[in-house]
Amino acid sequence: MLKIIDKYILKRYLGTFIVMLLMFIPIGIVIDVSEKVNRMIENKVPFNKIASYYLDFTIYFANLLFPIFLFLSVIWFTSKLANNTEIIAILSSGISFTRFLRPYILGATIVSVFALVMSIFLVPRASAGYKNFRYTYLMGGGQNQMRDNTDVFRQISKDEYIFVTSFNEVSKMAFNFSMEKFDNDKLKYKLIANRIKWNEKQKNYTLYNYTKRKVGEFGDIIETGESKDTIFNFDLEDLTPVIYIAETLPLHDLHKFIDKEKSRGSSNINVYLVVLYKKYSIPVSAFILTIIAVSVSSMKRRGGMGTNLAIGIVLAFAFVFLDKIFGVLGEKSTAPPLLAVWTPNIVFGILAIYLLRNAKR
């Protein structure tokens, strides 16, 4: 049963974290609106679409940045406790530093469980809405950059490959489609089309302005047409850009998708594994950052809260830097994705143990 001091600290822990989110997320929304309002007006985006986008924006970035908000909020209110000599009074009453940490760990558990549930159920849907809105309505000056990052090249079987230059999740349509089939490194046929559209009701695809070339021993057979309905042995998600397909899948679907990509020998498998492992590593980072924040800010310093916040900001940026660097290494290099994703937590976990020992002294 929680004691009064535990309830007091836990209330401050959760309350300050929520206030921190409520302070910074509106700032992020205002900055985003100021950058994109011209394109929204030009494209005549409906208000309900904008409202839905910023709801997804809030969920997406709250999940992405919650460890940093949590870290800074713990430093903030713990520094206030230290400056008011409340921590000295608590420890002088016979409570050990380890016992003093109990409500912090409980608070980190609550936040981590909530973050894990969000990353499994809410964040994939919010990520899809956020990225689809940007692609559909915010083309403008960012169209070329978006299309540069949305090329899709996939091996769908042992000897079949598909390619599209861009994909629109809303209309279920991909552009500049091509499909090639090989036999012992020899091209058997190639199909190209200006557009390919998925038909939800019919469960098939429609090709527009297509050309199919079948390579023969004595001559090629060429078929052309304005449109054609057909069935392929690949899924709609295979046309979705690598940059966000994994982020938009719920946990169960993500596991199935990764298994399918492994069986195909996909070259992008590390990208998907990084997304999967981060669903678990980010909630765990809440415990590590909480211990570091308490260890750093529980001591009353000459510079007051300013010194603690400065140390906290430096450590927060260091964590973000390591997370981004090792995330890219996990996606692009030969480093194991699991090790790359968990390296920031391992490094800061060691730092947390060191700082905790010094704080106890």
Rank of each mutant, 00 (worst) to 15 (best):
L315S: 07
K181T: 05
Y272V: 12
K44I: 05
N144L: 07
V347R: 05
I120A: 06
V117F: 15
K332G: 05
S34Y: 01
F97E: 07
S267L: 14
V275M: 11
K197Q: 08
Y244Q: 02
F321I: 15
I245M: 05
L101A: 06
F100I: 01
V242C: 11
F66K: 07
V341P: 04
N144C: 04
Y205H: 09
L239F: 05
P46K: 02
K203W: 10
I222C: 01
K360M: 00
Y210C: 12
P241T: 08
A193D: 00
T211D: 11
D148T: 14
L2S: 06
F163K: 09
Y130F: 14
G304M: 07
I5V: 13
I5L: 08
A293Q: 07
T58Q: 06
S166V: 04
G15R: 03
L191A: 11
S73T: 10
R102V: 06
I325K: 15
I110Y: 00
D148M: 14
V320P: 11
L322P: 08
Y53S: 07
L14H: 07
G141F: 09
I31P: 03
N194Q: 13
V347H: 00
G216C: 01
L239T: 04
K214A: 00
Y272D: 14
I192S: 11
L249Q: 10
I25A: 02
Y53K: 09
L355E: 03
S79I: 00
L14Q: 02
L64V: 15
Y210F: 15
Y161H: 13
Y130T: 13
V242E: 09
S333T: 14
D148R: 12
E200R: 15
S127D: 10
I90H: 01
I231E: 01
T240N: 06
K188E: 09
G28M: 05
F66S: 12
Y135W: 11
G216Y: 02
L239W: 01
L339S: 02
K7V: 11
A193S: 08
D6P: 04
A318P: 05
F317G: 10
P67C: 15
S96R: 01
K197W: 01
N194A: 08
V320Q: 15
Y280W: 12
V164R: 08
I353N: 05
N149K: 12
T230E: 13
T248P: 04
L91N: 07
T206Y: 03
P67G: 12
K158A: 15
E42S: 12
I350P: 01
N43W: 09
V341N: 08
V33A: 03
A352H: 00
N204C: 12
I196Y: 02
F317Q: 04
S297Y: 00
N168S: 07
Q145C: 08
N176S: 14
F17T: 13
L309M: 09
